[in-house]
Write a protein that binds this DNA or RNA. Structure first.
Length: 276
DNA sequence: AGTTAAACCTGGTTGC
DNA sequence: TGCAACCAGGTTTAAC
């Protein structure tokens, strides 16, 4: 699930209430993608700083008095979501991490356990820096110009859909928003990235930004598991033009939406208005 | 070097 | 109804 909009919706839900919260305890359930890499008890008494996001990762900095105490790098994987509650109760079968603070419990629910919570001494040091090293520019970074985006596409011979998922030209798009952005831009998902003209690259970047911004407005997409920190579902999936709509009519041209498989992932597109 | 497949894990849906 | 097969929002790691 969680693509950039869902992760950002989550960040917005926890940043203010957790700023300055005092950590009382960390609780770990079943193993996630990687071990925490730190003694949970050693983090009790630290204060949470400002939660930030990079790509689909969240960073919760911790400090002990004036001293930085590293932080937690979180990823929601395919099925993860975070909840923040004053009285969280006992963890359920798919709850695998709690950050218990004096402002409530931040709880990770992740049925598939592709998610991760990793302690790192700093955002720019291992292991956090290693995990973030390959990430391309943020989609809303003004420094990501259409020139730079086009240049990044020119460097890749893979299908543009796969390049969007790769996150090197730009981060944030997962399977839903890559399909939706390509549809909005009128670009065929199988088109080689290096065959995309400057004008079309400009159009694709704009389409991606519009798609992600719209999803943010709607609280993200909820296919099954995702909810924001208050338990609310996203609403974007209801207005998806192509994702998950194989055989249905394209809202723009009325053609039939097709489902194909690219790089082991389902791709939905409209052959009528997405051109090579 | 660069692209592709396999791996991690659980549960819901589909089809025989 | 039962059960096997397939599918799902991601990303690292290993293999061509």
């Amino acid at each position: 699930m969680p693509e950039l909009p869902e992760v950002e919706v989550t960040r917005r839900g926890i940043a203010a209430p957790l700023l300055g919260a005092r950590v009382q305890a960390l609780w770990l359930g079943k193993p996630l993608r990687w071990p925490l890499g730190h003694d949970p008890a050693a983090l009790a008494g630290t204060l949470v700083g400002e939660v930030t996001r990079r790509g689909k990762y969240l960073w919760l900095p911790l400090q002990r008095g004036p001293q930085a105490a590293g932080g937690l790098l979180l990823h929601l994987g395919m099925s993860g979501s975070l909840a923040l509650r004053a009285d969280a109760g006992e963890p359920g079968p798919h709850d695998h991490f709690d950050l218990r603070t004096d402002r409530g419990t931040l709880r990770l629910n992740d049925p598939r356990r592709f998610g991760a919570v990793v302690w790192s001494p700093a955002l720019d040091r291992a292991p956090a820096a290693t995990l973030l090293a390959r990430l391309g520019p943020e989609p809303f970074d003004p420094a990501l110009t259409s020139e730079r985006f086009h240049a990044a596409l020119q460097a890749r011979r893979a299908p543009v859909k796969a390049v969007l998922l790769g996150g090197e030209a730009v981060v944030g798009a997962g399977n839903i928003y890559a399909c939706e952005a390509l549809h909005r831009a009128g670009i065929h998902p199988a088109l080689r990235a290096d065959r995309i003209s400057r004008p079309r690259a400009t159009r694709l970047l704009a389409a991606l930004r519009l798609t992600l911004a719209r999803a943010l407005d709607l609280g993200g997409s909820t296919l099954r598991d995702f909810t924001d920190v208050h338990g609310a579902s996203g609403a974007y999936q209801a207005e998806a033009a192509v994702y998950g709509r194989a055989g249905a009519a394209c809202p723009r041209c009325g053609g039939l939406v097709r489902r194909v498989v690219q790089a082991q992932r389902a791709t939905y597109f409209c052959p009528g208005c997405q051109r090579r």
